[in-house]
Design a protein around this nucleic acid. Structure first.
Length: 416
DNA sequence: GTGGGGGAG
DNA sequence: CGTTCTCCCCCAC
């Protein structure tokens, strides 16, 4: 990576995702660390997995976030939930280590299920957490998706309490969202991807762009500012509320300007959703507003797929749809680390040293297209001669339909 | 499908 | 180290 791209990287090597990630926190920013055997206890000898995991604060274990860590600490410190959520964010905690939890009297997958379980909590969370505390993790490592499940834009506010300002912000957010959709969901059409029998298609109609996926739903979320305490202090609340509705087809129109589209999205969809969210004409005070494009219908990887044939059935804007199956892959397995722990005993981990020529610390996130070209707009429009009714598509067979009927329509063709 | 909770980076 | 902006999965209904 460094010689070819100029990036340093840190790697953790172990027997599962949890352990690899934890051990990868060591020796940043340019080394590889391996958790050495023994992995299991033989006789009286403790295993390196336990030795290694035991020293971590519970909240540092991936999968144990703020809430779960809080419950676990409260259980181990028997009774009093420490004063860690007092003034500011995470606040001070009494540092409960994995060891303290793992060796706590009566602790088990079952007791953890009791302590952590409840309405809304994933079934079997006790067993899952117990596994993590013991260095066990059987979660799969899978390929990253080609398109995200959702795209959202949000902004936070010191104070947002007039409809005027809300409208202005909604327009901003919508504009950004539309640009993101174009940047991340629109792909350049490759010339080589056309078949010969596509020759009758005029060059001008060979779309330069095609959608990789269509979000079916648009969601508006807000975070109302928590009410004042009697003593004037402020409760930290991250609670969001949201309303969602169908994504209008016009947002996929490649010939309208972002400005036109975003204003339409605001007035026709977002404002109604906002009124649903906040029926009161006034009184709300929002600290955050989020607009999201979700429920992605994947149209990607049409190259070489069964969707190729269907693609040619649609004239307008070269919309290419994937076969009638919605992919449901797991999330990206990319292991990145954010915490630099103290050095571990040398007999537990083994380090290969790559001295960095230049010290380089920081995010190594893979940039998305939109991040590479922030705020870029224009040039995406495609010329298109025959326009049906605004939001409709027409199949070769003559049928006219909205965007999301295309998949079902294609299926019908396949069966007939 | 919708709305909310919890978590990661 | 805390905050902000995203994005993900799961659950109840």
């Amino acid at each position: 990576l460094y010689s070819e791209k100029g990036y340093t990287c840190t790697v953790g090597v172990s027997t599962n995702k949890l352990l690899s990630k934890l051990v990868g926190n060591l020796h940043k920013p340019n080394s590889q660390t391996t958790l050495l055997p023994p992995y299991a206890s033989e006789a009286e000898q403790p295993d390196n997995v336990t030795l290694f995991v035991d020293d971590h604060e519970v909240g540092k274990i991936p999968g144990i976030g703020f809430k779960l860590a809080h419950k676990i600490r409260a259980h181990v410190l028997q009774r009093p939930a420490d004063f860690d959520d007092g003034l500011v964010y995470g606040g001070t905690k009494e540092s409960v280590l994995v060891r303290d939890v793992r060796t706590f009297p009566g602790i088990s997958a079952e007791t953890l299920e009791q302590v952590l379980g409840g309405p809304g909590v994933p079934h079997g969370i006790g067993a899952g957490i117990w596994g993590l505390l013991n260095g066990c993790d059987d979660t799969a490592i899978s390929q990253a998706r080609e398109v995200p499940r959702q795209i959202s834009i949000e902004d936070s506010y010191i104070r947002l309490d007039t409809m005027d300002e809300v409208l202005k912000e909604l327009r901003m957010l919508s504009l950004s969202l539309l640009k993101r959709m174009h940047a991340d969901l629109l792909e350049d059409e490759e010339e080589g991807e056309h078949d010969e029998d596509d020759a009758e298609t005029p060059d001008s109609d060979r779309a330069r762009k095609r959608w990789l996926a269509y979000p079916k739903v648009v969601r508006l979320s807000t975070r109302p500012r928590p009410p004042q305490n009697p003593d004037g202090s402020r409760n930290r609340s991250f609670a969001r509320i949201s309303r969602s509705g169908p994504m209008p087809n016009f947002v996929f129109n490649l010939k309208e300007t972002f400005d036109t589209l975003s204003k339409r999205l605001v007035s026709e969809v977002l404002v109604p959703l906002f009124r649903k969210l906040h029926p009161e004409k006034n009184g709300w005070n929002l600290s955050l507003v989020n607009v999201a494009a979700t429920n992605m219908v994947d149209a990607a990887s049409a190259k070489g797929g069964a969707g190729r044939d269907i693609a040619k059935m649609f004239k307008r804007q070269d919309v290419v749809l994937k076969q009638w199956k919605v992919e449901d892959e797991d999330q990206a397995p990319v292991i990145e680390t954010d915490v630099v722990d103290e050095q571990r005993p040398k007999d537990i981990v083994d380090m290969e040293i790559n001295k960095p020529e230049k010290e380089r610390v920081g995010s190594e996130d893979f940039p998305t297209t939109s991040q590479q070209t922030p705020g870029e707009g224009g040039g995406w429009e495609s010329e298109d001669e025959d326009v049906l009714d605004e939001d409709m598509f027409r199949c070769e067979c003559g049928a006219v339909m909205p965007v999301f009927a295309i998949v079902a329509h294609g299926r019908w063709h396949e069966q007939n």
